[in-house]
Simulated scan of single mutants.
Amino acid sequence: MSVVKTVRIAHEIGHLLMHEAMFTEANRAVRDAEKEAHVFAANLLMPERRVEALLPHHASLQQILEAKRYFRVSAFAMAYRAHTLGRLTDWEYRSVCSELGARGYRTGEPKGISMETSQVFAFIARSNLAKGISTTTIAEETGLSANELHDLSFGNLIAVTGGNESAKDSAGSTARPQLTLHVNTRMNG
C-alpha cells in the first residue's frame, strides 16, 4: 500500500469513528472534522511516545527521513508530526519542508514504500472468477455498486457497467450497449 494510501485510510478511519452524524454548520464543521481526522491519523500511524523515542529535539532532515521509513508515512507527514510534538521548532519545520520540496517530496515520495496488495481480495476475486461469479452478482448480493466494490477491493474486483441497452444507432436499429471499465487510478499515486 502506498504511503499516501496508508495515511488516507487512517484519516478516513478517523472520520468513521468520530464523525458519524451529519454536519449542521457545513463549512466550519468540515474544517473541524478534517483537522480531527488528521490528528487521529497522526496518532494512529505515528504514536507520540514512539516518535519521541525515535526523534530527538531539533531533528535533522536525515532523522526525519529515517523516521518516515520507520513509520511508513510521507516525509511531510513525519515532519509535521515532529513539529507538533515539539521535535522541530517553527523555523526548523519550515526549513525541513523547504528542503523536502527542493528534493521532490511535494510531488511524490522518492525512495517511497512499495505498494502493498491485498492477498485476501486477490484470492476472493480469483475464486469468484473460477466459479463464474461476477462483480455484478456480488454487487446485487451486498447492496453495493460495482464501482464501490472495485474501490473497496483496491482494484481486485473489476467493475464493468452496462450502458443504455435500448440505444438506437443512426439507422434506427438497436445498438450494442456501451460498456465502461472502471479502473482504480487512485492506486497509482
Rank of each mutant, 00 (worst) to 15 (best):
E36N: 08
V120Y: 12
M22Y: 14
E92V: 03
R69P: 03
N147H: 11
I13Y: 12
A79W: 05
A33P: 02
E36K: 05
A67L: 06
T6L: 15
M187I: 09
E148D: 03
R8A: 15
Q178W: 07
H11W: 11
A41G: 04
D32C: 05
G14L: 01
E48R: 10
G189R: 13
L85T: 06
N128M: 15
T137M: 06
S173W: 10
L44P: 02
E66F: 12
P177Q: 05
R69A: 14
M22V: 11
R186E: 15
P177F: 04
A79G: 00
L88M: 04
V120Q: 13
R81F: 00
A10S: 15
D151W: 06
K168C: 04
Y80D: 03
Q62L: 00
M1P: 10
L157N: 04
A139V: 08
K68C: 11
F40V: 02
L100D: 00
E116A: 10
D90M: 07
L88W: 03
A53F: 10
S127T: 13
A130Q: 10
S134W: 09
V30N: 04
D90K: 14
L65F: 06
Q178V: 11
S173L: 13
L129D: 15
L44G: 00
E20G: 08
L85G: 05
R106H: 12
M1Y: 15
E48P: 02
V183I: 15
R81I: 01
R94G: 05
R28V: 04
F121C: 02
R186K: 12
E140Y: 07
T137K: 09
S134Q: 07
V7H: 15
P177G: 04
L61S: 03
I113V: 12
Y80A: 05
T107Y: 14
R8K: 14
S127D: 14
T6H: 15
R94H: 14
T161H: 02
L61D: 06
S95W: 11
T117W: 10
D32E: 11
F121D: 01
E20W: 12
P177L: 07
M78A: 01
E140R: 07
V4M: 06
E99P: 01
L88C: 00
W91G: 00
G112H: 11
L157E: 04
K68P: 05
P177W: 02
A167H: 13
E116L: 14
E52P: 00
R106F: 14
S153Q: 01
H58C: 08
R50E: 13
V96N: 01
D169H: 08
V30K: 12
D90E: 09
L61N: 08
G143T: 01
